[in-house]
Simulated assay, not measured.
Amino acid sequence: MSNTAGRPLRADAERSVRAILAAAERVLAANPGASMEQVAEAAGVTRTTVHRRFANRQALVEALAAEAAAKLAEAIEDGYPETAPPLVALHRATANVLRVKGAWGFALGPAVLQSEQAARTHAEIARRCVELLGRAQGEGVIAADADLEWVRRVFYALIGEALHGGEHGTETPDQDPDVLATRIVDTLLHGVGPRLG
């Protein structure tokens, strides 16, 4: 983690920034209009400390979006998308993504305007996802003529529905990410039609 000037932060300053970002996620998820003062209170720091680290509310939200995107990228990497068997990597990455998206719902939500840094990270995640789907396609798990960009979009939609598509739009955060990942991958690869053979 680095500050807005690009210089590495001291360990105590980095802990402070992480505490502020974690508090910002909690506070803004509950109340998207919350103030910097409310974030400071939730983080257990002074308002001055928050303003020292983030020039304004927009800078805080952009840093929050970048941090959440970085966590999402780490979750994908933890699935070993380049070395694990494609189905194993797809399941593990999906379960990891569900965990991160569940914990960073505000920062990864549609209401947050992505910073350039977060947008670059999300573009790289999408590229890595298509690569993993390509590995699965190469092993015959996905049809040879499937449009992998379309498959990626369907995959993302299934993840979104798993997290936010409960009855009447209620979220289902208590469901086990591994169970949800199995359902998502199974639906992505097999659809909902009857199994033949």
Score class of each variant (00 low, 15 high):
Ser2Asn: 14
Asn3Met: 13
Ala5Tyr: 09
Gly6Asn: 04
Asp12Tyr: 12
Arg15Ser: 13
Arg15Trp: 13
Ser16Arg: 14
Ser16Met: 12
Val17Cys: 08
Val17Pro: 05
Ile20Gly: 06
Ile20Gln: 09
Ala23Asn: 05
Arg26Leu: 04
Val27Glu: 00
Leu28Cys: 03
Ala34Asn: 06
Met36Ala: 13
Glu37Cys: 03
Glu37Thr: 11
Glu37Leu: 10
Gln38Ile: 04
Val39Trp: 09
Glu41Pro: 00
Ala42Glu: 08
Ala43Trp: 02
Gly44Ser: 01
Thr46Met: 00
Arg47Leu: 03
Thr48Asp: 00
Thr48Arg: 05
Thr49Met: 09
Arg53Thr: 12
Ala55Asp: 05
Leu60Val: 11
Leu60Met: 09
Leu60Cys: 11
Leu64Ile: 06
Leu64Phe: 00
Ala65Gln: 11
Ala65His: 11
Ala66Tyr: 05
Ala70Cys: 11
Ala75Gln: 01
Glu77Trp: 04
Asp78Trp: 07
Thr83Pro: 08
Pro86Met: 08
Ala93Arg: 03
Val97Leu: 08
Val97Glu: 10
Val100Glu: 06
Gly105Cys: 04
Phe106Leu: 03
Leu108Val: 07
Gly109Ile: 14
Ala111His: 15
Glu116Ser: 11
Glu116Ile: 02
Ala118Arg: 03
Ala118Gln: 05
Ala118Val: 09
Ala123Tyr: 13
Ile125Leu: 10
Val130Phe: 02
Leu133Pro: 00
Leu133Ile: 07
Arg135Lys: 10
Gly138Tyr: 01
Val141Gly: 02
Ile142Lys: 01
Ile142Glu: 02
Ala144Cys: 00
Asp145His: 04
Ala146Thr: 00
Ala146Cys: 06
Asp147Trp: 01
Asp147Asn: 11
Arg153Leu: 08
Ile159Arg: 05
Ile159Gln: 11
Glu161Gln: 12
Ala162Trp: 10
Leu163Thr: 01
Leu163Asn: 02
His164Phe: 13
Gly166Cys: 09
Gly169Ile: 11
Gly169Lys: 06
Thr172Val: 08
Asp178Trp: 10
Asp178Val: 00
Leu180Glu: 08
Arg183Lys: 14
Ile184Thr: 02
Ile184Pro: 14
Asp186Lys: 09
Thr187Leu: 15
Thr187Arg: 15
Leu189Glu: 09
Leu189His: 07
Gly191Asn: 15
Val192Met: 15
Arg195Met: 14
Leu196Cys: 11
